[in-house]
Design a protein around this nucleic acid. Structure first.
Length: 838
RNA sequence: GCCGCGGUGGUGGAACUGGCAGACACGUCGGACUUAAAAUCCGAUGGACGCAAGUCCGUGAGGGUUCAAGUCCCUCCCGCGGCACCA
């Protein structure tokens, strides 16, 4: 070969022409839609869902492949297992990348998305995903977002969508508002937008919110019914942040001893510590401060503090947790249970305006923060909770028994909570209450590329829906509210939407025929993805978002795969939408997803997160070019478990190449075996592998499934002839992982007949394990003496304990350790192990 | 600080309900084929001692339960993810 230039070839490292093989079968599979999901099939259904991608960039990246390949293999397995499988795909295409591209180039996002989604679909077909493309959806298609808008109107009609003027997170770079969940802390601790890392600040704007807080309890309770990873349940639970407590009101008095109408309304989870209150704290941003600061004698000083706090960045506030505050001089409060007791009031920024009531009762002896504050301001710290012997508690926030609490002395914290709350309720000075950390969902964006919010602003300042969702004619006529084409996609400096400039579109008429203006804000990126799994069920329905009978058949989603970053965003939002729709009688199940697993991350070859700037990005297109789809699929899942975080490693490709190449060698040897012994051994090999691999597919452990294939192929190599039935099992069990090569070999074994769907290896029945072949007559088990393995014995599989004991004692090395000792205990775990204690 | 997940050979990772730790690979070493190399094939490969049979040690550290612990319990260390002055 020296000196010769090799002829151009599309052979890969496994030595076969993958391109022609892949082209041939790909075309037949998708032209004939062999992966069709059949509505109402008598077969049992399985709905396998992987989060639909946002088509940005040129094509799928390796992260997508990590996310979709395993679920594809799993659904292929289920299909062969005899299930009616729905494994759909679509495009979550509203949002910033297409819009930014539009701003830069003037290309309408509609066109860009059409182009990109085509490329993505092509790439997914190239990789060989078993998707029913008749159910492809696109969240930016008006036929799709018509129903996103329709559902929004349901929320609106139910009073769960509301317009509010409120301080919101704003990104100057993106010129849009962001939901609480979309703001994160970067490496330096600065608050930034999750999407692009741009800095954010608070700004007051008129915004639409969806009242997800009204579903807080339902979202929490629902978690108990579904199989999500524990980490996901915990994350959602702490995000919702439910805490039970009580509101306690403290009347406010002026310096002259006059009682005002104002009250410091605190929220506490420790109402049992009420007798330990020595001060009250109000968040400086709280609106009541406007009314209060005038009453105090130190108005100026208070204002100074308020100003200082408002200038503090959130970063400073988080980093510097030293307690600061100012007392409202002259003003004081009294205890709701004892008006003779005067309590000072402070403004302090350790209290958060947006949580609870924005005011707290300071109980320095039993709350760490209050303790620090009291320390700083020289306040007393009366102990009101002690242990049952009346001693001081080690942990100051622990529960115990009351002391210094008048009638309640000696009562347990739990009991006192109840009794004190009752007493407060009786006097109208308090009540039990539940609060949440969860905020309502900020649902409007000042951007072009999103679903228009289907509302109209009337001349009188009121708002109306473009259609009543229960009147079919209105819905038909008025939905969707289609995004108008505009010339300029740039957001406006003043925080209004670019749609504001589409004046013709904005002008409309209300239901009375009077001129009105359309709402120009659009929905956030999360809207379309909050219900897309419903649309896959009935993607072409133009009368409803999905047919109830079909939903009844397919729901809930059996397995849902996606990214960990969606735990408190998409996964919570869509559960909220679903629960709302359920309450409206529009979907048949209380939860959308029965089971969820978050995917891991593939790091660069250097073990660091892939990034363009680091130059450690693995390009799937290049991998496909070099190795072909089968090897890429196999090698990627062989790297490690689905939810793991590990580096890309070329080794995996080398070993998978070798295995596929050996598989091809085996295919040359298929024929009838004369030697009955060999046949039996082959059968044993394949059924043992089959049993293992079935279990691994079942548990979605594709990395070990690959190793089973490797082992089976290796073990079969020693035979000159491979039995056709053994071969058939091998191909079928490898088919979900390497669909192209196995199809090629399967069709070859059939003599390449004319294509028929039912001849595809992917629609064959999953082979049954023949357990009788795997029954061994004897088994080798270890013998322990005092916990250490001292020998191994061969025993008949059904040997009784006595026989085993004889054999064990007879083993030479074991005997050495038994010599001169009395056997105190003999344990035989059948078929597993023998333990002797001396 | 709180919550969750994890820590296993030189490396990626296996190990179902406690029952032979290190499957399957990569790498390394040795061998076969070759003029040579690549590819391919065969063998060895946790550490220590030993010619060997075998012995001792070994799943982040320390304790415990058990005939038996990577797996269960307690304390601690480290890494990753989430939350964080949330009353």
């Amino acid at each position: 070969m020296s000196g010769k230039i090799p002829a151009p070839t599309s052979k890969n490292s496994a030595g076969y022409d993958f391109k022609s093989i892949e082209e041939r079968w790909k075309k037949l599979w998708y032209d004939n839609n062999i992966y069709k999901a059949v509505d109402f099939s008598p077969k049992e259904k399985k709905y396998i869902l992987a989060e639909f991608p946002y088509p940005s960039g040129r094509s799928v990246h390796v992260g997508h492949m990590m996310r979709y390949t395993m679920p594809d293999m799993y659904s292929r397995y289920l299909r062969m297992k005899g299930y009616n499988v729905l494994f759909p795909m679509g495009w979550d295409a509203f949002g910033l990348p297409a819009e930014n591209f539009a701003i830069k180039t003037g290309t309408p996002p509609q066109e860009k998305i059409a182009e990109l989604s085509k490329q993505y679909k092509q790439a997914m077909q190239d990789i060989g995903y078993g998707i029913d493309w008749d159910r492809e959806i696109n969240s930016t298609d008006p036929d799709y977002y018509k129903w996103t808008q329709w559902i929004f109107l349901r929320f609106y009609e139910a009073g769960l969508a509301e317009m509010r003027e409120e301080p919101v997170w704003w990104s100057d770079k993106m010129k849009t508002v962001l939901a609480e969940e979309e703001v994160i802390k970067d490496a330096d601790g600065n608050l930034v937008a999750e999407r692009d890392g741009s800095p954010v600040r608070r700004r007051k704007l008129r915004q639409w919110v969806l009242k997800i807080t009204e579903y807080a309890d339902k979202l929490l309770e629902g978690l108990q019914e579904i199989d999500f990873q524990e980490s996901i349940k915990k994350a959602q639970t702490s995000w919702i942040g439910r805490s039970e407590g009580a509101v306690v009101k403290f009347p406010i008095w002026t310096a002259d001893g006059e009682k005002t109408d104002l009250q410091v309304e605190t929220f506490t989870t420790r109402v049992d510590t009420l007798y330990g209150v020595t001060f009250l704290v109000i968040a400086p941003e709280h609106e009541i401060v406007e009314n209060l600061k005038g009453l105090a004698k130190n108005t100026e000083q208070l204002q100074e503090y308020i100003d200082k706090v408002s200038q503090k960045t959130d970063l400073e506030r988080q980093q510097n947790k030293d307690k600061t505050g100012v007392r409202l001089e002259g003003v004081y409060a009294t205890s709701p249970i004892d008006e003779t007791q005067q309590i000072p009031i402070f403004l302090a920024d350790y209290v958060i305006a947006t949580y609870g009531t924005g005011m707290v009762m300071g109980v320095p002896a039993h709350d760490e923060r209050d303790y620090e504050f009291a320390d700083k301001f020289g306040l007393t710290k009366p102990i009101v909770i002690v242990d049952k012997d009346g001693n001081k508690l080690e942990d100051l926030e622990e529960y115990g028994y009351l002391t210094n609490s008048k009638d309640f002395d000696g009562m347990s914290s739990e009991e006192a909570k109840e009794k004190i709350t009752k007493m407060l309720e009786a006097s109208g000075m308090g009540e039990s209450k539940v609060t949440y950390k969860l905020h309502d969902w900020l649902f409007s964006r000042q951007r072009y590329w999103g679903e228009p919010i289907p509302l109209i602003h009337r001349q009188d300042g009121t708002v109306e829906a473009v259609a009543h969702t229960d009147i079919v004619d209105e819905v038909e006529k008025n939905l969707p509210v289609v995004l108008p084409r505009v010339d300029d996609y740039k957001p406006s400096e003043d925080g209004s939407s670019p749609l504001e400039r589409a004046t013709e579109w904005v002008q409309t008429v209300d239901s009375d025929g009077n001129p009105a203006k359309r709402e120009t804000n659009t929905m956030p990126n999360w809207a379309g993805s909050s219900w897309y799994y419903l649309r896959y069920i009935d993607p072409h329905n133009d009368k409803e978002f999905a047919d109830m009978e079909k939903m009844n058949y397919w729901l809930p989603v059996d397995k849902y795969f996606g990214g960990a970053e969606h735990t408190t965003l998409h996964l919570l939002y869509s559960r909220f939408w679903h629960k709302f729709l359920y309450d409206q009688g529009l979907v048949p199940t209380p939860e959308p997803y029965q089971w969820r697993m978050n995917g891991g991350i593939l790091l660069g070859p250097d073990g660091v997160k892939m990034s363009k700037s680091r130059g450690n990005v693995v390009e799937p297109q290049k991998l496909l070019e070099e190795y072909g789809a089968d090897l890429v699929r196999m090698a990627l899942v062989f790297l490690g478990p689905y939810d793991g975080v590990y580096p890309y490693n070329k080794n995996s490709f080398d070993s998978c190449s070798r295995t596929v190449s050996r598989l091809l060698d085996l295919s040359e040897k298929v024929g009838n075996i004369e030697n009955a012994d060999d046949l039996m051994r082959e059968k044993r090999i394949i059924h043992k592998a089959l049993r293992a691999i079935t279990n691994m597919y079942e548990n979605m452990k594709m990395n070990t499934a690959v190793s089973e294939i490797m082992t089976a192929v290796r073990d079969l190599r020693e035979f000159d002839t491979i039995d056709p039935e053994v071969w058939s099992i091998l191909l079928r069990m490898a088919a979900p992982i390497i669909p192209f090569v196995t199809e090629e070999l399967w069709q070859k074994s059939l003599g390449y007949p004319e294509w028929k769907n039912e001849n595809s290896v992917h629609l064959q029945e999953w082979p049954e394990v023949d357990e009788s072949l795997l029954q061994e007559d004897t088994v080798e088990i270890p013998v322990q003496v005092n916990g250490k393995i001292r020998g191994k014995i061969e025993i008949p599989i059904d040997a009784d304990e006595e026989t085993v004991e004889q054999l064990a004692k007879a083993e030479a090395n074991v005997a050495r350790y038994l010599e001169g000792n009395e056997i105190r205990k003999f344990i035989y775990v059948p078929g597993k192990i023998v333990t002797i204690v001396v």
